[in-house]
């Protein structure tokens, strides 16, 4: 009974993470501008990673792999906003202008 419930929760977490990962990939491919693509990539780095690693951690239980999964999750949560900020700052300093209209196709520099 408990194993069934853990499997169900793990399925739900892994499928939710899969939804976020594929949605982030589609957004990264379809969004019109570099700065909007940053938003799409951040989606996978926060909730896609969290739900996928949560699904794995439910299967592992209270063991050493769960601690490693939590360490990976905390590290990605710390470094993903940092690298996103560095990317946006670097792009803005190099003269890449954000486009406000979706029809400009990302060629806004």
């Amino acid at each position: 009974m408990v194993q069934w419930l853990v499997d169900l929760l793990s399925w739900a977490a892994l499928l939710g993470g899969a939804l976020f990962l594929v949605g982030s990939g589609i957004g990264l491919l379809r969004f019109p501008d570099f700065y909007t693509r940053l938003h799409a990539a951040g989606l996978a780095d926060t909730l896609g990673t969290a739900l996928t690693l949560l699904g794995l951690g439910l299967q592992a239980g209270f063991t050493q792999p769960s601690v490693k999964l939590a360490m990976i999750l905390i590290f990605i949560w710390l470094t993903s906003p940092t690298s996103t900020h560095a990317l946006a700052k670097s792009a803005l300093h190099s003269g890449l202008k954000p486009s406000s209209t979706p029809s400009s196709g990302g060629k806004s520099s």
Binding site: A18, L19, V22, S24, G25, I26, L28, L29, A44, G48
Partner: peptide, 10 residues
Amino acid sequence: IAILIAMTLI
């Protein structure tokens, strides 16, 4: 499979 689809799009 989901990770591979996302990797292809990226």
